[in-house]
Structure formats: C-alpha cells, structure tokens
C-alpha cells in the first residue's frame, strides 16, 4: 500500500477542515456579523450624507474586511494545536507547505468567501455605485486570499503563545497595508469612472507572490513554534 498521494492528502485535509467548520457553523457567522456591524458603525460615527459615504465607502468596507479576516485567523491552527492534530500534520509524509495551502484555502472558503457574499449588502448601506460594487467584489476576490495567506504566517508564529491573539494583529496588519491601498483605491477609482486595471493587476501580483512564498514561511514558522 502506498501512502496517499499528495493531491489526495491535500483534498482529505481540505474536506476535513470544511466538515469541521460545517459542524461548528455557528462560529462561522461571527466574522461575517463583525464585518457588517463594523461597516454599519461608520455612518453612525461620521454622517449619513450619501455623497460622503459613497466617497469613503470603499475604504470603510476594506478596513472592515481586514479586521474581520484578522478576527477569524485564530481558528486556522488554534483547535489543531489544542487537540494535538497539528503535531500529526507536522509529521506527515507530505510536504508541510502544501498542506498549509490546504489549511489556508479552507480558511478562505470558510471566512474569506462569505465576505464577498455579504459585500453587496454593505455596498448598498454605503451608497456605492454599481461600478464600484463590481470592483469591490473583484478586489475582495483577489485580496481576501492574500489576507489569509499572510495572516497564516502570523498565526503560525503565535500559535503556541498563551496570549497569541493580542500580538497577532501587530504582526499582521502592517503586512496588510499594500492590499488595503490597492484594493480600496481600485474601488474608489471605479466609482469615479477611472480605469482600475493597474490596481487589479497589482492585487493579482500580490496574490501570486503570497501563494508562492507564504506557505513555505507558514510551514517554517509552525516548525519553530511547535519545537
């Protein structure tokens, strides 16, 4: 009997995480509610003037997406660390960085994708134009995976720490700045009818870079925190 091939192990791990998330469905809602709630707070804090909201809307939604993704990062390794299955992952006959891609992909499907589904609702709340809404979805589609990929490095570094969560934001938010800048400005530009192809291609470049580099960094970080 040969060991499971890499694609098999990848899909088994992915399916396992998705089943686990499905069985803890209630927890999946929290980042979503947070995302909507934070966005809804801004008009209350600033003003309900539609023109103003339309102008600062993209930035608000993207900052809220950043914070929602940060909030949900803990779940990537926390439960595996607590019950010991993380050690089993480290000792698998498959390259750890590839398994990390499965973990991050599962995290994105569970927490990143739903942000895209809810975003149009927030677009309406903040009076975004349809063009801006379309670009918002595009930037979220390209940007949220980068948030998960980079965030996974931070979580891997802080998984063993008692109060890991508090410094996770300090480690990860500075690294989110490029995504925030390119994405938010893309949505703002499309609202003003300006071309956004440059912004989207830069976001796509960030995504490619993150996919190629961060799994290895996450694997190395895990090995260090678990040693």
């Amino acid at each position: 009997m040969k060991p499971a091939t890499l694609p098999q192990a990848f899909s088994i791990l992915l399916r396992r995480d998705l089943t686990l998330a499905y069985r803890r469905r209630s927890e999946m809602i929290n980042p979503l509610l947070f995302f909507v709630l934070v966005t809804a707070l801004f008009p209350l804090g600033i003003s309900a003037d539609p023109a103003l909201l339309r102008e600062i809307g993209p930035g608000i939604i993207w900052v809220a997406a950043l914070l929602a993704s940060l909030l949900s990062l803990e779940t990537v390794f926390r439960s595996d660390f607590d019950d010991g299955s993380l050690e089993q992952l480290l000792l698998s006959p498959h390259p750890l960085s590839v398994l990390m891609i499965a973990k991050v992909l599962a995290h994105w499907l569970i927490t990143g994708l739903p942000l895209l589904i809810v975003a149009p609702l927030l677009g309406v709340l903040l009076n975004l134009s349809t063009a801006a809404m379309k670009t918002l979805l595009l930037t979220l589609a390209l940007g949220t995976p980068v948030l998960s990929l980079i965030g996974a490095i931070g979580v891997a570094l802080t998984v063993g720490l008692r109060k890991g969560g508090t410094i996770l934001s300090l480690l990860v938010l500075p690294l989110y700045v490029p995504v925030l800048i390119f994405a938010a400005s893309a949505v703002a530009n499309s609202d003003a009818g300006l071309p956004v192809s440059a912004h989207l291609s830069l976001l796509a470049a960030l995504l490619v870079l993150a996919i190629s580099l961060s799994p290895a960094a996450t694997a190395a970080s895990l090995r260090i925190s678990m040693s």
Binding site: P174, I181, L202, L209
Partner: peptide, 12 residues
C-alpha cells in the same frame, strides 16, 4: 514586504 509597502505607499 518592506519594498512592497514602500511602493504601495508611494503609489497611494
């Protein structure tokens, strides 16, 4: 990330 951040801030 430093050069990426620097570039994105310049752009911004």
């Amino acid at each position: 990330n430093i050069p990426i951040i620097h570039y994105s801030v310049e752009w911004w």
